[in-house]
Design a binder for these strands. Sequence first.
DNA 1: CTGGATCCACACAGATACTG
DNA 2: CAGTATCTGTGTGGATCCAG
Lengths: 218, 218
Amino acid sequence: MTTKTYGQYCGVARALELVGERWALLIVRDLLVGPKRYTDLRAGLPKIPTNVLATRLKELESAGLVERRVQPRPSGAVVYELTPYGLDLESVVLALGRWGARSLGELRPGEIATPDSLVMALRSTYHPPKRGTGKLAYELRFGDIVIHATCSGQTLTVEPGPFPEPAPSGMVVVEAMASLTPLLTGAIDGAKARASGIVGKQASAADLDLFATVFRIE
Amino acid sequence: MTTKTYGQYCGVARALELVGERWALLIVRDLLVGPKRYTDLRAGLPKIPTNVLATRLKELESAGLVERRVQPRPSGAVVYELTPYGLDLESVVLALGRWGARSLGELRPGEIATPDSLVMALRSTYHPPKRGTGKLAYELRFGDIVIHATCSGQTLTVEPGPFPEPAPSGMVVVEAMASLTPLLTGAIDGAKARASGIVGKQASAADLDLFATVFRIE
DNA sequence: CTGGATCCACACAGATACTG
DNA sequence: CAGTATCTGTGTGGATCCAG
């Protein structure tokens, strides 16, 4: 958001004036996963110049999308959190991520994945299973990055990190092999990932198929 | 799309590298209404510098979102048209427009509305009527700007300009008074617009109510 | 007239160093 | 930890000019 406007009385133009600048929607993407500290945002966006991050946060705050909160002592930590209006950007970020994931090829040199970006990617590909699958629990692993998801019906939760103990029984562990692409594009299959069961369940190819049905593009 | 990347293997980041630069999504917005010539795009985006428009079009073309076509003689006109991948940005533009429309206040000085922006705004607020309303036809007028829409069930068409002759019977004319805001935000009522029937129908407040139900935010 | 290209001034992004 | 300060380069805005 700058002094420069598009001069159009239009929702799209107004939205771009609020979140159209470089890095803004990526900051929102990470905040959609949960409130974060300044340092956490830097960790999730390693290539953002620190002055740009500071500027964006001020702009998003004065636009009413982000709230800067100082935690009570003793922590005294500064936390950035989306306001309700900021949270409503989820549909935008998900639509954008769905569209952009289609042109994700292989990992390019210097390119990284982050837990938060994976969380939003998974949220963007969710298709509620038709019926009778009950509650599903997945733990996704790619290298050091681990996220977990549970879903039943319309309700989906995806969060960074492994399941807190005790892990839900019936949880299926999905490990992406060699490439994240299939996970982000929904083109997952046995050659690209494997499912291993934990906690009283033996995972099978059928589990991976179900996963690929629930999380897919379009 | 520049040489600058976000360095993230993420659909959102990739999307922003493709259409995240200034003016890009507004060009896409106008092209979603239909193929356009260079001059038409300039007319719809009066404040875009001509070199920026030319640059964006090249970028969008090399990204595979836009196709530049030269019409056969005698016209020989240059036309820019969205590719299928570019057309898939409609969900993104609609989501962005819905979100941004909520912070549209009154028309600001120097701000204009265009037929294309109104067309996309109306598309973004469509809620298919539950049942039994049959086919609805509206002609919307605000100052010089006229667009028309028909809808029945899931199918919606909104296009710039008045209905071609002969106008559909039962068409309702909705005239925004003094302000476009209610049209774009769905907060329309009798104080802000009026419905007048044409072609064998006498429009009533009920017609305006139905309109406000079919086209509204969230 | 359409469909741009060229030029310049400047605001903003990127990179790095520094600070309460 | 949470930023600020400073410098540099590039993208953007604005105006003008040009070829078919």
